[in-house]
Design a protein around this nucleic acid. Structure first.
Lengths: 349, 349
DNA sequence: GAGCAGGCTGGGAGCGCTCCCATGTGGAGT
DNA sequence: ACTCCACATGGGAGCGCTCCCAGCCTGCTC
């Protein structure tokens, strides 16, 4: 009779059946007592709760999700190297927003990495098995097939960022993005208003829509300036501090008369500020700098940095809310939300 | 007959039963064909695989884990603010090691945050429901009851760091830690060998064993020096760059004759280096600095920093391997592993 | 005092899967 | 030709839970 499949000393985990027996009620009543207690007498209620406590009962989530068709947890999938995931405060901030919203709805959040092709394939297989009720995917590079593939499996997907191509029309796929084009334009127009005429750009990865959008915002303004927007006036970075420093050095080398820089995020702005200082340029007198993000709690990254604020926490919350709506099958107000940004002027411009 | 519980257009997800019917075999044969194919004829094998592909079959993981009693995924639980989780490269590095090992064993890794008391309670309830076969917990503060509580629920736990108190003897709880005491001692002895006599310490949080161990290592050496180890010679930090800078300023204020600093991690060393520079001290001529960690790929954090290397990736792998052993019920070579560190001398000392 | 709601209760059905066992089926051994 | 065994197969049992429905017992109304 003793099933010793488990390794924990042979003691069997208590099941609902055992709790019911201990409480002297049926399985059905025990289930009701433990889940809201509708149509359960006070006596039964207390007996069941006492029995559950006595036995240390914990409902088996696999059994529950098998019958419910829901696991009660959602995934935050990051298509990014673990290195950048953990070094860029952007992800932390999105995660904070998502997390805050989910906690309020009693949904468990799990993070999962899907960087290499093998991991992405495994991620697809796994999520298709429905251990998660839905997923939020951030940091999508290129024309990544993963979000669309997961959505096609019937698992709701929300993308943090823009969606291009045919995936835009998939019913099970929504997105939340900042208005990167307008934000970038505002930043550069601000530099122009400050009298700058030689404004460089340190872009994000150009295989990401966010990288291209901010570049395009910069270009649309700078190309109207006397000098135009020669290709050497924008340098591609990868959102890391080191790449920001390197890009700033290259900008300076190609354009010694540089008097303004717009970087695609604040972390790269930090790198650029360091490089400018090393090159003997004063900020903002010689070169004015504007970043992008303005994440809360990251004043330390680049003190006094003028930047374009995107409401990342609120965006995270919106992603979570959107996903929960989709999971419940409720209609979305807008499948692809775009939230606006604000210029925050400080000392570097 | 049509069950419209699902929201995905009414198309029912294919089950194993349907695949079997499509392939013209029984459920049992289909199951065998899809899992290794033992005792399955070539004909049946191919028919099942074709049918599965045609229907887009994906096994339901809840059903599988219900019968197997295993979910095939393990959790990396971080008892830390999302902010620090994502800003300290230490976590990324542990995660990388854990991840590498698990991928090789075809186990899915999920990260979960458990910072606030409410989240920790939820984490306990959740993990007790066995959605995970085991958990690795890192960044444990104080006498955290969470690891012990999870282990007591019968879920194997591996702690990244040291374990103190009664939890040490729990059968379902193991740990992997660096030899922080010896590492710290080596660092400070190195400074002494360099002729330094006024060696301060910027410690980690003292509610963490790792913080206390490295402090103790420093103290054991410094207390033997002529000036001893007055309380003002060590300042508590929280492993962040800002706290390192602030601590360095306080050390300098209390001890203008400071000629050496040992910081409990590299990130704080970076902050300290900045503060020392601002205070006009030359490194290493005026003040020598030694950090702790030497994480791969983080040369950018503090170039040329002399530091104590702990093999964090290998430790992550060891945590994962240990957990897998426990899950399989195999005996552990050592329940509490301690790995040794190496001093890496560079330019700051 | 019969009739009737409405609250409680027990237990069957079933979620989708893997294991197990009884039952085939062919080829090798005598 | 007969036995024997290895391989192949189908389908029942059961993992632990929630839903559902029939049946019960109250307490109330007329």
């Amino acid at each position: 009779m003793e099933d010793s499949r488990t390794a924990d000393g042979g003691r069997q985990r208590p099941t609902l059946e055992m709790v019911a027996a201990e409480a002297g009620v049926s399985r059905g009543t025990a289930s009701r007592a433990l889940n809201g207690g509708h149509n359960v007498s006070r006596r039964a209620m207390e007996a069941v709760q006492a029995a559950a406590a006595r036995l240390g009962y914990r409902p088996n989530l696999a059994a529950r999700s098998l019958v419910l068709g829901r696991s009660g947890s959602i995934g935050l999938v990051v298509s990014e190297s673990d290195e950048r995931l953990f070094s860029d405060p952007y992800f932390a901030t999105v995660a904070r927003g998502v997390h805050a919203e989910l906690m309020a709805h009693d949904v468990q959040l799990v993070l999962a990495l899907a960087q290499t092709p093998a991991e992405r394939e495994r991620m697809l297989r796994w999520s298709a098995g429905r251990p998660l009720d839905g997923v939020i995917i951030i940091s999508v590079h290129g024309a990544d097939p993963l979000p669309g593939a997961i959505a096609t499996e019937g698992v709701p997907v929300v993308i943090g960022g823009a969606v291009e191509g045919p995936d835009r029309d998939l019913p099970g796929l929504a997105s939340v993005d900042a208005d990167n084009l307008a934000g970038a334009r505002t930043a550069v127009e601000h530099l122009v208003a400050r009298g700058r005429t030689r404004i460089g750009h340190i872009s994000g990865p150009l295989d990401m829509v966010v990288g291209r959008d901010r570049l395009e915002g910069w270009r649309s303004v700078v190309s109207g300036l006397p000098g135009g927007a020669p290709s050497t006036l924008s340098v591609e970075g990868d959102f890391t501090e080191a790449s920001g420093a390197e890009a700033a050095r290259r900008l300076l080398a190609a354009h010694p008369d540089l008097d303004g820089v717009f970087t695609a995020n604040d972390v790269m702005a930090r790198g650029a500020l360091g490089a400018l200082q090393q090159a003997g340029r004063r900020v903002p007198q010689d070169v004015a700098v504007v970043g992008f993000d303005d994440l809360p709690g990251t004043e330390g990254i680049a003190p006094g940095l003028t930047t374009v604020r995107q409401p990342v926490i609120e965006m995270g919350r919106l992603m979570a809310r959107t996903l929960l709506m989709m999971i419940e099958g409720r209609p979305l107000a807008e499948q692809h939300a775009v939230v606006s940004t604000t210029l925050v002027v400080r000392e570097t411009s």
